Computed example of a mutant assay.
Amino acid sequence: MGVSRLDVLYRRFLLTKLFIQGWGKPEDFKRMFEFRKIIGNRERCKDFIPKDYPVVIEKVEEQTDCKILNGHFISPLEHAVPGILPPESVKARFQFLVPKTWKKYKPVCIHLAGTGDHFFWRRRTLMARPMIKETGMASLLLENPYYIL
């Protein structure tokens, strides 16, 4: 398959090096737009991920104020639209910080990594641990693809 003319034209006007190898295969875009119709429908989407979806816990660390669970899972998108994700994005790695004692409710905050946040340390130390101490809220820290592991 040849290079898209739109990609070539766009690259001529680019000042940065983002997307210099194109935006992907047109058939992948078609597959993503078809999947968007499924995920956009609430009735079809609510059962998209089963309640017993497999999550692997690799290591559990006992801390004074919490438990830290290290693990991974396969992205549900890989099952829905096989081959659409780059290999580095198929396996999602995470740390889950759970307070030693839960209160009446069990709130969880999901922390996505910002640009340059290569591992869990910054989010764990500056956000998740204080949240456990102050409010008893658990935190799920997702690792960015292409970083560390």
Rank of each mutant, 00 (worst) to 15 (best):
M1Y: 14
R5E: 12
V8A: 12
V8T: 14
L9G: 07
L9I: 13
R11D: 13
F13Q: 07
L14Y: 10
L15Q: 14
T16P: 01
T16N: 15
Q21V: 08
G22Y: 14
W23R: 15
K25N: 14
P26S: 09
P26C: 10
K30D: 11
E34R: 13
K37G: 10
K37D: 15
G40V: 07
N41D: 13
R42L: 14
R44V: 11
R44K: 15
K46E: 07
D47N: 15
F48V: 04
P50G: 09
Y53K: 08
P54S: 05
V56G: 00
I57P: 04
E58W: 13
E62D: 12
C66N: 02
K67N: 02
H72E: 05
F73N: 04
P76Y: 10
L77A: 03
P82M: 06
P87N: 06
P87C: 00
E88C: 06
E88D: 06
E88S: 07
S89E: 09
V90Q: 00
V90L: 07
P99Y: 02
K100Q: 08
T101P: 00
W102R: 10
W102H: 10
K104L: 05
Y105R: 14
Y105C: 06
Y105S: 14
P107D: 02
V108Y: 09
V108C: 12
H111Q: 06
G114N: 11
H118E: 07
F119H: 03
W121R: 12
W121K: 09
L126V: 09
I132M: 06
M137Q: 04
P145Y: 13
P145D: 03
Y146C: 05
Y147R: 13
